[in-house]
């Protein structure tokens, strides 16, 4: 579903944020992307979602190039950023409907999904309020509902559990599992290694823009915990 080949991205000023990384996320995968702050996780995610341009390498979503067919790629992808900066001047329902319009989600399907996810995240009563009145967690929930409104084939999340209450985190994890069972692929970054260990079937560890480990979870961690592997690979092991 998602194929990253030799991706490299250098920011203005010469900082190499990502340096030739390659990985593959298959249908049904929950792929955890782990790394210390500033390792290149968000840069990679933004390149995948078409937000950031990159100078070399290739990103394919469902066989389509992000560079050559950006709109087609975006149509089957949903992205939830680490900071849910969504339109504060809209109400929650107006924002979700706006996203539904952009993805051209059929009216009945749209209403059904809004009901399903808004009820799940206990946001229904708040949908008529302006987003500027929402807490960080509520904005995050609206961003998640909007991302799910078009039933994406590839769900990309950047630190999705930061800011969510335990109940919402639990619901999101269940949604992620359900989506993968139905043939979707999930690619997400996280700092919470316990979550990655419990949720993912594949992980990649990035350090200073380079992949230091990538593959099925059991293969990457071997007999150790993911935390021990991460600390060793990120240069903080004993």
């Amino acid at each position: 579903m998602l194929e990253i080949n030799n991706l490299a991205k250098t920011y203005k000023g010469g900082k190499k944020a990502v340096d030739g990384i390659s990985m593959k996320v298959e249908t049904g995968d929950i792929f955890g992307f782990i790394g210390p702050n500033g390792a290149g996780k968000t840069t990679t995610i933004k390149a995948v979602t078409g937000i950031l341009e990159f100078e070399s390498g290739e990103i394919l979503i469902d066989g389509m190039s992000v560079k050559k067919e950006p709109i087609a790629c975006k149509k089957i992808t949903a992205y939830i950023p680490d900071n849910p900066d969504i339109y504060e001047f809209m109400t929650g329902i107006a924002f979700i409907n706006f996203v539904g319009d952009i993805y051209q989600v059929e009216k009945g399907v749209r209403e059904e999904r809004v009901k399903k996810y808004a009820d799940l995240f206990e946001m229904t009563a708040n949908l008529g309020d302006r987003i500027s009145s929402y807490s960080h967690g509520m904005r995050q929930k609206i961003a998640i509902i909007a991302a799910l409104i078009h039933s994406p084939k590839l769900l990309v999340l950047d630190e999705p559990f930061v800011g969510l209450d335990p109940n919402a985190s639990y619901i999101l994890k269940n949604i992620m599992r359900d989506m993968c069972a139905q043939g979707c692929a999930i690619f997400f970054s996280t700092h919470i290694l316990e979550v990655a260990e419990k949720l993912c079937n594949k992980v990649a560890i990035i350090r200073e823009g380079k992949l230091v480990a990538c593959g099925p979870l059991e293969q990457v961690k071997g007999d150790e915990s993911l935390e021990q592997v991460f600390l060793e690979l990120s240069g903080h092991g004993e």
Partner: peptide, 11 residues
């Protein structure tokens, strides 16, 4: 201002 009394309606 937040009323938190929204009911789902036709979109």
């Amino acid at each position: 201002a937040a009323k938190s009394d929204y009911r789902l309606k036709e979109l």
